[in-house]
């Protein structure tokens, strides 16, 4: 029996007549980098929000870090980190104040926050900028900082909702280095993205079309299955099949 970080069964979300997420079933292993792909409006964000406890599912089951998303939302929240597509740090706070704030609301002690701040700044090579306002940092730095703050409380799973939107390729690469480091520590990464090169970095990916999961496997096997050279082709084949 494998150790699963996320298990869903027939997870569904309806908004009136519209079915945003239609009976999706999948498992994510502990320590895995799981890519969650799909065109805009395919239901990725809805699915992710249900897993984070931001949305109540209409039906189906889901367990995150072993906790039920219906009844144990508080425990789910304690064990996950979240980084949204909208930039999520406070611009009018300094780097250090942001770290202290997010550490604080996750209940870290002062000593823990101090240690974390030190380690985090060193890792990002941002010691000099610790006292700068976040608004003065370049976007790539903010994004990396965002990620590091999302995992500040050592969650077992971190959800990343299009974390690298609008960032140059070099920074994106650096960002993925951070993700790999976290994955090496055993953190499960659940990431949505539009960049197909990023999809290749994932251990396994699922592709959603119209609220359903149409494909789920390792990038390599998916390419074989669809007889494609790149993930881009796989994605286009699936997305076009719909229209």
């Amino acid at each position: 029996m494998k150790n699963y970080a996320i298990v869903t069964k027939e997870l569904t979300k309806r908004f009136g007549d519209f079915i945003a997420t239609n009976a999706i079933t999948f498992e994510v292993e502990q320590g895995e980098i799981f890519g969650f792909l799909g065109a805009n409006g395919a239901g990725k964000t809805t699915a992710m929000r249900m897993l984070c406890g931001l949305l109540k599912p209409s039906s189906g089951e889901a367990k995150v870090a072993g906790f039920d998303v219906y009844t144990q939302t508080e425990k789910v929240k304690q064990s996950i980190g979240y980084m949204s597509q909208k930039f999520s740090l406070y611009e009018d706070l300094t780097v250090k104040e942001n770290i202290r704030f997010y550490g604080g609301i996750y209940g870290l002690s002062n000593q823990q926050i101090k240690d974390k701040t030190h380690a985090l700044l060193q890792q990002l090579n941002m010691e000099k900028e610790a006292g700068h306002l976040v608004s003065s940092l370049p976007l790539g730095w903010k994004q990396k900082l965002s990620f590091s703050i999302a995992v500040i409380h050592d969650p077992s799973i971190v959800f990343l909702d299009e974390p690298t939107g609008g960032v140059d390729p070099i920074t994106r690469r650096q960002f993925w280095d951070l993700i790999y480091e976290a994955a090496d520590r055993g953190v499960t990464i659940f990431v949505t993205t539009h960049y197909m090169d990023e999809a290749e970095y994932c251990n396994r990916i699922s592709i959603m079309v119209d609220g359903k999961i149409k494909a789920l496997d390792t990038p390599k096997k998916l390419k074989e299955q669809f007889n494609a050279d790149s993930m881009n082709d796989v994605f286009l084949q699936l997305a076009r099949a719909k229209s």
């Binding site: 406890g53 979240y82 980084m83 597509q85 909208k86 999520s88 406070y90 611009e91 997010y102 609301i105």
Partner: peptide, 9 residues
């Protein structure tokens, strides 16, 4: 700003 989402999570 989107920070509300982070707070709610």
């Amino acid at each position: 700003l989107g920070t509300m989402e982070i707070l709610l999570v």
